[in-house]
Amino acid sequence: MSGKPKLYYFDGRGKMESIRWLLAAAGVEFEEEFLETREQYEKLLQDGFLLFQQVPLVEMDGMKMVQTRAILSYIAAKHNLYGKDLKERALIDMYAEGTTDLMVLIMMYPFLTPEDKEKQLATIIKKATQRYFPVYEKVLKGHGEDFLVGNQFSWADVQLLEAILMVEEKSSSVLADFPHLQAFKVRISSIPTVKKFLQPGSPRKPPMEVKDVPGIMKIFYG
């Protein structure tokens, strides 16, 4: 096996996408093994690789890591994207958890009925513009720095950009009332490693669509 991290997941965003984002932002190349059949998933279970019987699974540094938050924390700490002390790490955790809560709402969207999708879309836009984005706008305005924490590029910045772009896919004008977030989006998107990940042909996945759902359900539920 090469020294590159290896990611095990289906060929789509889901919970693995934030891991792809963070590795890419850190300038780390990785390999992926896409789960396309129920048999592949069952093999990982039988081999004991899935500690809690679920993916994402990331193989790196001699470890087989599961649980998205643990994987992200490890990558962030290893690549100096986790602040300079415990206080900064706590802030990064807080901001990352907030964006995770918002992104989970969007991840659920393709699995809903048409009626529920309409309600969910309204909920996504409302929470983005009234609960989550105002927090980050206030933080950036308050300290006047380029990044969310410690004036240093961190996991929190990576995940906030990911969340912004996900919401913009649902409503392109969502940042209209957030000038500091607009500037943040441009600034973080211009970081060379991030810019590379945003280019066509990168490992970044497109939004999940309804047509993708049956295949995913078959892999994990038979």
Rank of each mutant, 00 (worst) to 15 (best):
H180K: 07
K64T: 09
I19M: 12
Y74F: 12
T99N: 08
D11T: 00
K15A: 13
F111T: 13
G62C: 06
P214N: 09
V167D: 04
E59H: 08
A96T: 15
G201S: 08
K170F: 11
E39I: 06
L160E: 04
I191K: 13
I124P: 04
P5E: 08
W21T: 05
I75T: 06
Y74D: 05
A96F: 15
V66I: 13
M108T: 14
Q120H: 11
F10E: 13
T123F: 00
G83R: 06
P134Q: 06
A90W: 00
L35A: 12
I106L: 07
E118H: 00
G150M: 02
Y8L: 03
P192C: 13
E162Y: 01
M217K: 14
L175V: 09
V139W: 02
K84V: 15
V186A: 15
L22Q: 05
M108I: 14
E42I: 05
G27F: 05
D212V: 11
A183H: 12
M65E: 07
L91K: 13
L7K: 01
M65L: 15
R131S: 10
K15L: 15
L86M: 09
P203V: 03
E17D: 14
K87R: 11
D61A: 13
I19R: 04
K141D: 14
L81W: 05
I92R: 03
E42S: 06
L160T: 01
L23T: 03
T100N: 09
I92F: 05
I164M: 06
G12P: 05
Y41M: 00
P114A: 03
P206N: 15
F10M: 10
L198T: 07
M107P: 00
F133W: 11
A128K: 00
Q159S: 10
W21L: 04
A26D: 07
Y9P: 00
H79P: 00
E97C: 04
L7W: 06
G48E: 07
I75Y: 10
V55N: 10
I106Q: 07
F220Y: 15
K78I: 07
G48F: 08
S202Q: 09
P214I: 04
M65P: 05
M1W: 13
I106H: 03
E33R: 06
P134D: 14
T99K: 06
I191H: 07
V210R: 01
M103A: 03
L181Y: 14
Y95C: 02
D101K: 02
P203F: 02
M107G: 13
K43Y: 11
A128C: 02
R69F: 05
G144F: 03
V158T: 15
L181P: 13
P134G: 07
F184P: 14
V58N: 05
F49S: 06
I106S: 01
K141T: 15
G14N: 03
S171L: 02
H143G: 14
S73C: 11
E118P: 00
Q53C: 06
L148P: 02
T99M: 12
E42V: 04
P5R: 07
R204I: 01
E42N: 11
M1Y: 09
L160P: 01
R13H: 02
D11S: 05
L7E: 09
Q182Y: 13
F153W: 11
L105N: 09
Y221C: 06
K196V: 04
E168Y: 08
Q159Y: 04
Q199G: 05
I19Q: 04
L22W: 09
V139Q: 09
F111L: 11
E59V: 10
F153D: 08
K64N: 12
S190P: 04
M107R: 12
H79L: 02
